[in-house]
């Protein structure tokens, strides 16, 4: 069964079905926007959407992927960013930026589900995503801004 990533089908013949989706994306497909941080679902840097649901790509074996995958590259582009990405740019959230693909994918998933999240909703959804640079205050600001922008859209 082919793997659908960002709308494109990729053959999986010959690939190890035990290989986590994270490494298929990075080492096989060259989609390096999705990051490796811990390998045990503790940091969230590898967060992608599978069938629209935020998922830790380090925990899903290739053989277990059911549904289309969206990565940070498929969410938006530098030329046409997703509203969450636009808010991240406008608020200049990133420092090292390494966790931000995962943060953005997690935030986009929350806002798709709950367009007007409370602070508690944000806490619950985002606390699995680790940022070692300490960009949390701006992540919070950018999420509020993105929620406003998406409501207005």
């Amino acid at each position: 069964m082919p793997l659908t990533v960002n709308g494109a089908d990729h053959p999986t013949d010959g690939l190890d079905p035990a290989m986590p989706l994270l490494w298929v994306l990075r080492d096989v497909l060259g989609l390096t926007g999705t990051k490796y941080g811990c390998g045990i679902a503790q940091c969230g840097a590898c967060t992608v959407h599978i069938d629209g649901v935020a998922t830790r790509a380090c925990q899903v074996a290739l053989g277990d992927v059911r549904g289309p995958v969206t990565t940070i590259e498929g969410l938006g582009t530098p030329e046409a960013p997703h509203p969450v990405q636009a808010a991240w740019i406008e608020r200049q959230v990133a420092q090292c930026g390494y966790c931000q693909s995962g943060q953005i994918m997690q935030a986009a998933s929350l806002l798709a589900e709950i367009p007007d999240p409370t602070e508690e909703d944000i806490d619950a959804a985002m606390s699995g995503n680790l940022c070692r640079c300490g960009t949390y205050p701006r992540i919070r600001e950018a999420m509020r801004a993105a929620a406003r922008a998406m409501k207005g859209a």
């Binding site: 390096t32 926007g33 999705t34 990565t71 940070i72 590259e73 969410l75 938006g76 582009t77 530098p78 960013p81 990405q85 991240w88 740019i89 200049q92 959230v93 990133a94 930026g97 931000q100 693909s101 953005i104």
Partner: peptide, 13 residues
């Protein structure tokens, strides 16, 4: 605006 901010917000850095 930091030079790297767009790349770091779009997975392209």
């Amino acid at each position: 605006q930091r030079i790297d901010i767009v790349a770091k917000s779009t997975g392209t850095q």
